[in-house]
Simulated scan of single mutants.
Amino acid sequence: MFVAPPGYQPVYSPSIPYLGPVYGGLREGSSIYIQGSIPENITRFFMNLLCGQSESSDVSLHFNPRFDGWDKVVFNSRQDGSWKSEEKIRDMPFSKGKGFEMVVMVTSKGYQIKVNGKDFHTFKHRLPVERVCGIHIAGDVSIQTINVIGVRLQGSEDFSCLLWPVPYSNMIPGGMSPKRTIIIRGMVPNGANRMSINFMVSRSRDVAFHMNPRVREGIVVRNSKIGGNWGQEDRELSMNPFKEGQYFDVSSTDISTLVSQMSIRCGNQRFKVFVNGQHLFDFFHRLQSFSEIDMLEIEGDVQISYIQF
């Protein structure tokens, strides 16, 4: 069962050039997440945030990587048919023949660009961000996913209407069973401290599996709470995939196709957790009957864009 907030729908594997809407426009706190790959023979590509529905509309953000011997990324804006002054960053965050993960975060100062988890550049606002209502992508690039999170639906006063409210609590249809995977996609916002994902027994309120990323500490705590008592914490990890400004994807799809991917799978003896195709940890069942697990709760500093049971 796929459960998405009203009006929210990611774009998967669009043809290039791509011209599509941003329903409801952008605002401070919105984010655009793009996964793609760069061909070996790339020359250049661009992404424009449009203040209209056509390619000739005003451009609030022009993002234009150029592989021309003097590799650089050009930023600009266009108003009333005229391009304004360019900002040239003589650094290249993309690699030929490689995949990438790009996040455009709307802040009070401008568009903060992150590529593969690293800050790249902030382009200061030249046009009101509320005017943005379209995305145009063209050139030498292949796109797998476009997600716009935290926009406003027309006629709604709730600016977060395309995010699930957190804390989140819902029943798991049919409960947990071997080989079942829960899909959660979201983002750890800037300034986040901690969050938790709890697999629970609704009848007793026991927490069979508690996963608690603590962003500032750089750890992911795992535990259970049975009969009102917390058990022994598991803390050891080889890496921590939950960082400020990073998207995560809890999914049972082919984990080799996504840059930022986490998969939680229930087995007879344990929950198995993978991130980016690599095994992160196992959490062995502490309840005698894991089939009693029938509720999912999510709390803390996290934005959730969709959930699939």
Rank of each mutant, 00 (worst) to 15 (best):
N76K: 04
N276S: 15
K243Q: 15
I298E: 03
A4M: 06
C133H: 07
H136C: 06
R180G: 01
G191I: 08
A4F: 14
R270N: 10
E101S: 13
G99V: 09
T257A: 09
V221Q: 12
S13A: 11
P17D: 05
V220H: 03
H121C: 07
E87L: 06
E55V: 13
K88F: 05
N268I: 01
H210V: 02
S108Y: 03
G24K: 07
T181G: 00
R222N: 08
R270E: 15
N223S: 01
E28A: 11
H136P: 01
K118R: 15
S54R: 13
S263H: 06
P17A: 04
Y33G: 10
K98S: 14
V3C: 05
G186P: 09
L258E: 10
M92W: 08
K243L: 14
G139N: 05
M171I: 11
S31V: 14
I143N: 02
S95K: 12
Y111S: 06
R270W: 05
Q53N: 12
I298D: 05
Y168Q: 03
R203W: 01
D140G: 11
R235K: 13
D91N: 14
M1E: 14
I135V: 14
F75V: 05
M176P: 10
G186C: 09
K124W: 06
F94Q: 07
T253Y: 05
I226M: 01
H285F: 09
I197E: 13
R78G: 05
V132N: 08
F271I: 12
G300L: 00
D301H: 14
V74N: 01
K118P: 00
V59Q: 07
V74R: 01
R78P: 07
E217S: 08
S85E: 15
F159I: 12
L258W: 12
V129P: 03
M262F: 02
V106W: 02
A138S: 14
R214M: 04
G20V: 13
F283Q: 07
Y12G: 00
P213D: 02
Q53T: 14
G186W: 09
M105A: 10
Q232I: 11
G20K: 09
G191W: 03
C51T: 08
K96A: 07
S238P: 00
D140P: 10
M195A: 14
S256I: 04
I149Q: 09
Q154W: 01
L296F: 05
